[in-house]
Each structure stands twice: as structure tokens, then as C-alpha cells.
Design a protein around this nucleic acid. Sequence first.
RNA 1: GGACAGCUGGCCGAGUGGUCGAAGGCGCACGCCUGGAACGCGUGUAAAGGGCAACCUUUCUAGGGUUCGAAUCCCUAGCUGUCCGCCA
Length: 414
Amino acid sequence: MIDLKLLQKDFDATATSLKRKKVDSELIDLLKNADETLKHAKTVYEHTQAKQNELSRLFGQAKKEGKSTDELKVQVDANKILLNELLDAQRIAEETLESIAMRVPNLPDADVPDGADEEDNIEIKKVLPLSEFTFTPKEHWELAEQNEWIDFEKGVKLAKSRFSVVLGMGARLERALINFMLDFNRERGFMEVSVPMLVNRRALEGTGQLPKFEDDLFKIEGEELFLIPTAEVPLTNLYQDEILSSAELPIKMSGYTSCFRKEAGSGGRDVRGMIRQHQFHKVELVAITRADQSDAVFEEMVACASDLLSALGLPHRLVTLCTGDLGFGAAKTVDLEVWLPGQNTYREISSVSNTRDFQARRAKIRYKEEGKNLLAHTLNGSSLAVGRTMVAIMENFQQEDGSIIIPAVLQKYL
RNA sequence: GGACAGCUGGCCGAGUGGUCGAAGGCGCACGCCUGGAACGCGUGUAAAGGGCAACCUUUCUAGGGUUCGAAUCCCUAGCUGUCCGCCA
């Protein structure tokens, strides 16, 4: 949630900033008005409540002294009717504000480039030269089937389209990658955490997936539980509603989970292969930091993911997302795109975001500094999407006969 | 799934209708004491919102109810514990 005080104090700047992220200016006005309405309703209610408290105190006193309470009773009853009306008004104002505010995205950082969509993202740098081939490289689904690493039909049989079964060396490689990534991250100071893959509504609201993106989530019937779309949700919400001490920050975590996404609205994109699946594995990085630490930790996380790709020998590039491509909760995002020779293009394999205090405000993640409670900053980044890493390994290290050379760093994990 | 018990501040814990945001303890902070420390002594120590401030409002798991007035009484839900059942 954005800072509503900032909106009131500096409406023009905040509104301009939100418009960069394609927020309707009508919604911004609505938000401002709802905030003011609530503030007013609260003030009036509180004055009336104070009066009621005072009358009740007098009532008790009169009773004790044996005086008549008839006259007070008339006053107190009349005030109570008013009080109830004001309380209702306040509640409506609260609900209105909440429903608007929870759907307003985070403000982009000032240095995030303007832009409409991914076309306007800005490349920071390329890492590692592109693999060279003396033959026409194949796409990963062809290689996966040829090597019998992935069975796409069996996934459909067991569940439905966009599910697959990984077998043999493919399955072993998957497991090796997960272990390699977790170890790599741990060496960089990210503590390994194993979390639930089902979470409640509160957690998803905390990180911003709800209320706006309910259609993208798998929900458990008859329970208020959802399959997580990313480990960011459980990892970040680990500290939901907590007041941390300044000294224990930054908290840096790494966790492996399966992720589940409905991919509603992805249309016919990437139906083939394992680029876009309903269920996929991912190792995630999450950090909770003080406000003054988040920029540095952000760079650490980007470096961690990039170095991981380099260790695997995968050519990739770093891209700063423009305002139009920035996610709901992100103030700033750097995507890592891996080179896929079969597809002859770079594809996203990791996305590192600083949400600043946006998630912390929703999830109530705070830290104490000099006696004051301040909102923490939260960051998240993939490190990496396992399926897409498999795809990259297949396409980059394929041989003319279709066999695949597995990166040396993974040997000890196999 | 069934029965019973519980849920109070950072933690433990007292508190069954009014002056209780809440005794006491632990922890923490500061001061005194000390060569330095421990011990001891003293003081302070929940959060959110509004206001320049005095101060006001809210919060004793959550929601609803009774009442002039609820941490306290009633109902519902959640969670925790114990026992029973079932089961990887």
C-alpha cells in the first residue's frame, strides 16, 4: 500500500508518480477523497465517543453517590444513537478507502525509466558471450523429448495442459540445480528456509497478490487457502505483523518451493515446452531490510542471481524494467534474461524487485530504531526459476547429435 | 473428526462489571554503586490514529451481542494445548 500521508501532503507529485505506472487519474482522486472522508468521519466519531465516555463516568459516579441518573440516562441514550450512526459512517469510509488503496500499485522509484511496455526496458549489460553453433540449435522441447528428460503428454494425463513430468537425468538435473542454487545463495549470506506452499488470504494481501490478482491463483476449495505463486509470499510474510530490532536487519533468506500459477490471460503464449507452466520450481531470495539498506541489498541480490547464471556458464543480460512493465508492488525491478539459442532470443529467468515499504505497510513489517517503529523494506528475487534454467542448459549446451553437456559445477550434485 | 482447557504488553503472569492500558516479575534502556563487572538500588519501558501542544480516540486473539459502562458476562470464528478417533 502506498503512503496515504504522502498523497495528502504532496498530492501532485504522488499523482504524477502513479500516472507513470499507468494508474487512472480518476482512481487517484478517489483515493484522496476516500482518505479525507475517513479522516473527517473519525474525528467526529472520536469527539462523540469522548463525550459518551465522560457521560458514562458521571453515570457511575452518580450511582455510587446514590443520586438520580434519570437525566443522564436521557443524554447518554441520545448520544449513543448518534454514536452508532457515526460508527457506521466511519466503517463505510474505512471499507471504501481500503478497497481502493489495496488496488493501487506501488510508486516507481524516480530513476526508473518511463515506458509503456517491455519494449521500453533498458539493458544494463550483457554477461558472457553467446554460445556459438556450427549447426542450427534446436528448441528445448525437442531436446527434452529426444533425451527423454521431459514428458509433456503425461503431465496432461495427470492434470491438464501446462503440466509436465520430468524424468531420468532431467529429474536429477532439476534436483541438482535446486541444491546448487540453495548452496550458492547460502554462501552469499541467504539463510535457507523451507516454508508452506499453501498460504492464507492475509499473507497474499501482505505481499500484494490479493485482492487484485485472485484470478491468477489456485484456491483450495472449501478452505481459505491458496497455492503460492512464488515463495516470496511465505518468505516475506514470515515477518508479517512483527516489530524487528534494527540490529537483526537485514534478514536475508533463500527458499525452494514449487510455484503455482493459473496463467490467466497469458492466452496462447508459450503453450509449448516448459517456459510457462501451471506448476514450476523456483529458488527465491527474499530480504527484509532497514530503509537505508535496501538499495545495497538489491544490488547484492541482482549480483547473486547473475553470478549464479555465470557459474552455470549461461549467457544473459540485465535489464531495468520501465514504469509500464513494473509489477504491482515493485518500486524498481531488474530482470535477468538468459540467452536461448534455440529460440534465438533472451528470456526472463529471474526478476529482482525492491518494493521499499509497500509490502511492509500491508503486512505490518516494522523495525525499532531509537524507540521508533519504522516500516521495513522488502525485496524479492528469483534465483532462479528452475524449469527455465533447465531450458537454458538444454539450449545452450546442446551438441549436434542432440545430447547435452551438463555444466561442471553441477557434477557434484548429480 | 469428537471432548475438554486456554488465548492479557517483547516474554511470563495477576485481574469476574466503573478510577484497568492493565498489579507483579523477567527482559531491555539510563543513572547510582564498582578499578572494571556481577550483585544491589533508583528511574523509565506497548502499539495505532488525530492534534503545534495540552490532550483525545482505539487496541487485553477476531467478529457480534448484553450494558449508561466490558479484559471481566453471552454467542460465533480462529489459533494453541491435552485426551480420544483416523492416518501418511
